[in-house]
């Protein structure tokens, strides 16, 4: 495993490569000609105003929605032409932490984390319990193994969702809105956790968020969407110095002049 991790860390080339991605819901174009690369072992933040297509992009990258046009390569494999079985195989190599945690309410937190290990882990049963404890320790929930998700706070549920996402040691983890709905202390703790996981496990994280403080703290690189188009890719520092009006507006937290019309 250490060898595999090392290989992954040392391998060159982007971990995700998206070319000319187009997504449509009926006649409405949600993503228009989106092209970008996610470098290995970095925290790549996808950001943009509400309704700009962030979550749609995340669902395309994780194979939950098929692309209308264009290609998406995950770890060198093009997933746009994959059948359901191949997609399922690809999805075993990624972890997804959902905005509302996506934990199964009828199972304990430990069983939630153990589920992918028992289904796919090919692991001896005594080790499954140890791995569950380890993953829960990594996210700071060592004492929550036998708790039900309904007994956890919002921040703890997000961390439990993250523990389940990293259960199978995927090289790529997607995280939808990690800080949404959390108090600043909890959100900051989650940011530290994300940085720790990237550093210790050597994983690449693709995070959808629009929390500026969080972006400044964790992002190695950002991609900004506006009305389905990529308007910026680069580091946070570059974004803050960008001449692009929409990018500046976002980082300066300036409201739209026609905010009502845009929101309608």
């Amino acid at each position: 495993m250490a060898k595999k991790l090392k290989e992954q860390k040392n391998a060159n080339g982007p971990v995700i490569r998206v070319r000319n991605l187009v997504a449509k819901y009926g006649d409405v174009t949600v993503l228009d000609n989106v092209t970008f690369d996610v470098p290995r072992n970095e925290i790549y933040v996808i950001l943009g105003a509400s309704g700009c297509g962030k979550t749609t992009l995340l669902k395309h990258l994780t194979g939950l929605i098929p692309a209308t046009n264009g290609t998406i390569e995950i770890s060198g494999q093009n997933i746009t032409g994959m059948d359901e079985e191949q997609l399922a195989g690809m999805q075993r190599n990624i972890g997804i932490a959902f905005q509302n945690s996506g934990l199964f309410n009828s199972m304990t937190v430990g069983d939630n984390v153990a589920l992918p290990l028992r289904e796919y882990g090919n692991m001896e049963p005594r080790l499954v319990n140890a791995v569950v404890r380890l993953k829960l320790s990594l996210v700071g929930l060592a004492n929550a193994e036998y708790k039900l998700p309904s007994e956890l706070s919002g921040g703890m549920r997000k961390r439990a969702g993250l523990a389940r996402a990293i259960a199978l040691d995927p090289p790529i983890v997607f995280f939808d809105e990690p800080s949404a709905g959390l108090d600043p202390i909890m959100a900051s703790g989650l940011d530290d956790l994300i940085l720790n996981l990237k550093h210790l496990l050597g994983i690449s994280l693709i995070i959808v968020t629009h929390e500026l403080d969080s972006i400044r703290k964790i992002a190695d690189r950002i991609l900004m969407l506006d009305q389905g188009r990529v308007i910026f890719t680069g580091t946070v520092r570059e974004a803050e110095q960008s001449e692009h009006d929409r990018v500046r507006q976002f980082f300066e937290r300036r409201p739209d002049e026609h905010i009502t019309q845009r929101n309608i």
Binding site: A2, V131, L201
Partner: peptide, 16 residues
């Protein structure tokens, strides 16, 4: 020099 999560899981098993 290096350890991964499965190695860590065996450590937990050993500690128990």
């Amino acid at each position: 020099e290096d350890m991964d999560t499965r190695g860590g899981a065996w450590l937990i098993e050993l500690a128990n």
